[in-house]
Amino acid sequence: METTIPAPLSAALHDSTMDAHERAETATFITRLMGGEGSPDGLVALLRQSLPVYEALENACREVGPDPRITPILDSRLDRTAALRADLEFHRVEGRTFEAIVPAVEDYVAELRSCAGNAAALIGHHYVRYLGDLSGGQIIKTMVRRHYGLEDGLSFYEFEIEKPKVYKDNYRSALNTLPLSDEDRQEALDAATRAFDLNHRIFLDLEAAGVK
């Protein structure tokens, strides 16, 4: 009887989250923002939602300790909390503020806090957020600069990584060699799908709140 060899984790994460990813990236709020139909205030609202999410994610990653199931992909250069705070302060000085936290963010933070100490689940969340920032996040930065004339207040999308493509390739290679059990692997895949779904819900909540 032939044994089925599972796909590399990086490929499995991509394939298993494809539908959830598409729902998120085609949400009206984000497509309007990127298409020039939104405003700088919409970007600020999005950055404000992102801050508690990254605070929770980065705290959870610190709390997991030296676990070989996730340590190879952890990198302080990816941390976004300080950049988000700096961007929000820049926009505040420019007269752009948004203080409300939408319900989906509260659920997202609760999800991440529940993953503290759970290396397998954190892999999925780490993959969605940081690989997304190094990929789609760069497109968002380009589009908001083009449409809204913003040159500053975008450090969230800027990394001290010289060659992002090489970095992403190495990140995927590291994912593929993590010492995971079958249960760990499934937990990572499930967490990644939840992350995309929560991200989608943030966009829906911002749209429902009338944020442009």
Score class of each variant (00 low, 15 high):
residue 60 A to W: 05
residue 188 A to E: 01
residue 109 V to A: 01
residue 25 E to T: 08
residue 108 Y to L: 06
residue 81 T to F: 07
residue 8 P to D: 01
residue 39 S to F: 11
residue 17 T to N: 05
residue 42 G to E: 11
residue 147 H to Q: 07
residue 212 K to E: 15
residue 32 R to S: 13
residue 165 K to G: 10
residue 34 M to Q: 14
residue 69 R to G: 13
residue 40 P to I: 10
residue 149 G to N: 06
residue 185 R to M: 07
residue 129 R to C: 05
residue 9 L to M: 08
residue 105 V to Q: 01
residue 90 F to V: 04
residue 36 G to L: 06
residue 98 F to G: 07
residue 2 E to C: 08
residue 209 A to C: 02
residue 193 T to P: 00
residue 114 S to G: 14
residue 63 E to K: 15
residue 156 F to N: 08
residue 127 Y to F: 13
residue 58 E to F: 04
residue 196 F to K: 03
residue 204 L to N: 02
residue 54 Y to D: 02
residue 30 I to P: 08
residue 187 E to K: 14
residue 144 V to M: 09
residue 92 R to P: 03
residue 111 E to R: 12
residue 82 A to R: 13
residue 205 D to C: 01
residue 22 E to F: 01
residue 19 D to Q: 10
residue 206 L to G: 04
residue 164 P to G: 12
residue 137 G to W: 13
residue 167 Y to S: 15
residue 63 E to L: 15
residue 50 S to E: 05
residue 25 E to V: 09
residue 10 S to M: 07
residue 152 D to A: 14
residue 10 S to D: 12
residue 139 I to R: 04
residue 155 S to A: 15
residue 153 G to E: 09
residue 202 I to S: 03
residue 73 I to H: 07
residue 129 R to T: 02
residue 165 K to H: 13
residue 192 A to Q: 02
residue 198 L to P: 00
residue 157 Y to F: 15
residue 61 C to K: 01
residue 44 V to M: 14
residue 117 G to T: 04
residue 21 H to E: 11
residue 180 L to D: 04
residue 12 A to D: 10
residue 163 K to S: 14
residue 38 G to F: 14
residue 141 K to N: 03
residue 203 F to E: 09
residue 26 T to D: 09
residue 156 F to R: 08
residue 80 R to H: 10
residue 100 A to D: 14
residue 44 V to F: 11
residue 154 L to S: 10
residue 86 A to F: 06
residue 28 T to S: 15
residue 204 L to H: 00
residue 25 E to P: 02
residue 4 T to M: 15
residue 169 D to C: 08
residue 208 A to H: 09
residue 97 T to S: 15
residue 183 E to R: 15
residue 177 T to Y: 04
residue 63 E to D: 12
residue 119 A to R: 00
residue 1 M to Q: 11
residue 193 T to W: 00
residue 109 V to F: 01
residue 34 M to N: 15
residue 150 L to D: 02
residue 30 I to Q: 10
residue 46 L to S: 09
residue 209 A to T: 02
residue 108 Y to Q: 05
residue 80 R to D: 09
residue 204 L to F: 00
residue 161 I to K: 12
residue 17 T to G: 05
residue 83 A to P: 02
residue 201 R to K: 09
residue 191 A to H: 03
residue 190 D to R: 11
residue 104 A to D: 03
